[in-house]
Amino acid sequence: MNKFKQHSVLPGFNLALGFTLLYLSLIVLIPLSATFIRASALSWPEFWSIVTTPRVLASYRLTFGASFAAALVNAVFGLLVAWVLVRYRFPGKKLVDALVDLPFALPTAVAGIALTALYAGNGWIGQFFEPLGIKIAFTPIGIFVALTFIGLPFVVRTVQPVLEDIEAELEEAAATLGATRFQTFSRVIFPTVMPALMTGFALAFARAIGEYGSVIFIAGNMPMVSEITPLLIITKLEQYDYAGATALAVVMLVISFIMLLVINLLQWWTRHRSALA
């Protein structure tokens, strides 16, 4: 008995599954395993010394730290944006709704240049911070700004449909039971959108870790201060240090994988508790 093959009214299970596996292998798995194979050309001590130099460690902290912070900010404000787009009617709503997708569509280099121009010491926004002694462009804050920019649509677009699904009756029921607006939000609405919000957070976070184009313009790329890991990888490639580049790539892969796994587990846990499945 073939356990996987159950009779189904949907035809083509074998073909569809076969194609899916082949496709995933070609597009995802083979390139990833190539990275590991490349990196395995290094001996363990060599590998370890490459991935733990102070400059590299600083870049991990920056990449993951800024990505995490940006995803967190996006989770908060993305929820707000989604809420406004779902709950209220106002002139120009369609336009605002379309604007949310702009970071998806914009080439990241364009975004990077635009943000740098804005936030540089003499830029439109940067000029107001300059006198306060706050530099945004060419510092980790600039990286954080760029990563926030590119991550926003992920949160909005995952939370929006879930918010749309919440019946007005739920809020009415809470109100008749004596709950205040805040209690209704914190006890009824927020727990319901929580799983979607975590998905959005995970997507924004994953995107931010891998972001390169928009960051290198605004980062200034000073070693130990504002140098992200993807840039280090590029630097190594430019020096024909393929093994070193893949070693860093492997570390990023593993950390990303673990983080996504943890987020998925958390998500499964909240979903299980809220029993939406």
Partner: peptide, 27 residues
């Protein structure tokens, strides 16, 4: 609504799906 102290039952139940039955009633 909050101050009127009315019990309201909706056609489609409007139970809080993220809460157990006990917590729904306790809300």
């Amino acid at each position: 609504v909050r101050e009127r102290q009315v019990g309201f039952v909706f056609q489609h139940y409007a139970l809080f799906r993220n809460m157990s039955i006990l917590e729904n009633v306790a809300f």
